[in-house]
Nucleic acid binder design. Structure first.
Lengths: 234, 234
DNA sequence: GGGACTCTTCGGTGTGGGCCGAACCGTCGG
DNA sequence: CCGACGGTTCGGCCCACACCGAAGAGTCCC
């Protein structure tokens, strides 16, 4: 009984159009200022401030005051997973082909994007498939990195082994993609791969949002490292 | 933008105390009548009827009219996972010991319960641990049944192999437990194990809710099959 | 110090929606 | 055919809350 009211309170945080817009924007994993979010959602600064207060109090967001700015960010990977889990319920028509399902404005997002801290979209799925095809990732029942997979991350990809150790966070996790309706690699390994690809300049962000694109150097590198042909992705 | 309003609409379905109560009750996976839910939540029949209309229209519940009764049920395992995912966010205090965290009224639930269609609570975690200890389940990175695990399910446990084939549903999945704060086995395999243990009479439901208890025969069988000592569970 | 800027606080307004009771409709059983 | 019962529909009430503008607090820069 007590639990149901807590559940309702949590859901109510996301049950408002403006707050939902904030949270979806914040799914890019970066920090936004209160003013940016107000403009994005089309509400006044005072309204945005009240909403952010509720989201922070509810534990979905964390804030950092810096000068006259209030930066907010998702409180952690679990919040991001929660949001993507909810978003995954919003595409109840798996019948139509992907080319029709994705509108032109979101075409770049469908090609490749960050999902909180890992890669999603066709790029995320393609990398996941390539890892599975080379025996680096076991997707038969749940997602699990093979020992070859761990070696590949720390060897050719150049992730340091200590970056793959975490107290609590699972190494590999499946995250359901709402444009592809397929699982892609999340968890600590997914986040580190995304970090690494951004750091090497193999992928880069488009504009200020979640969309990412693969650079020519990245296309070549992924072909060498993963036998991955990304030419049809664009 | 369009997506955010859909997200808000979905969250709003769960953002009401009464509807949240309904959904948590329905997490036992069984069908309830409208009147039962109204009594449970302490609202009038007319109010309950309106809430159920919204939950069904929103795709969270499915209904079956039978005589003068309206039976409702969660629309599927994905809805159940969504709910448990939200509930998992409600225990943000992992510091206190479990014995203090669980109130007396929910002690039976903490011992063992069904989580939609699989087992949770200390029982669910104990079985998951036992499977892992015997090499039947790989929990190192994500959850994955080993081939020994599949053999054990279809052999000693007596699940027919075709019951373990599904078009879409993953065989093994990790489900986070809100009393134990540990993962336990969900997915198709988790559901079949629960079915089987109920069918053999090794576990049985307590009253009309989600709590289950292990019978003496079940205690003995699980000791034999899994080296699992359940005497301290009660 | 003064002006520009970001954000917060506080009244006040309007509306969405949760709730109930009363009336009504179907179903079941005698 | 009638009463009991489960569920639905409708009208009305009322509260929660999203929203804004105005005023104010804090920060930055000239």
């Amino acid at each position: 009984m007590a639990r149901s009211s807590e559940l309702a309170a949590l859901a109510r945080l996301l049950g408002d159009d403006t707050r939902a817009r904030f949270c979806l924007a914040l799914l890019d994993g970066r920090a936004w200022t209160a003013g940016e979010l107000a403009t994005l959602a089309g509400v006044s600064a005072s309204t945005a401030s009240e909403h952010l207060g509720k989201l922070v109090a509810g534990g979905l967001l964390v804030e950092r005051r810096q000068g006259r700015h209030r930066y907010v960010q998702l409180a952690g990977p679990r919040v991001a997973e929660l949001l993507e889990g909810l978003v995954a319920h919003l595409e109840p028509a798996p019948e139509r082909p992907a080319s029709l399902r994705t509108s032109r404005v979101s075409a770049a997002l469908a090609r490749g994007r960050t999902c909180y801290d890992h890669l999603a979209g066709r790029l995320g799925v393609a990398i996941t498939d390539a890892l599975a095809a080379r025996g680096l990732l076991d997707t038969t029942a749940g997602f699990a990195l093979t020992s070859d997979g761990v070696d590949w991350l720390t060897g050719p990809l150049g992730i340091s082994p200590e970056d793959l150790r975490s107290s609590r966070r699972p190494l590999a996790k499946a995250c359901l993609d709402w444009t592809e309706r397929r699982s892609h690699l999340a968890g600590l390994a997914g986040a580190r791969i995304c970090d690494r690809l951004l750091a090497t300049g193999w992928i880069k962000r488009i504009g200020t949002h979640r969309a990412v694109t693969v650079t020519p150097a990245g296309t070549e590198a992924l072909r060498t490292l993963l036998d991955l042909d990304l030419t049809q992705l664009q």
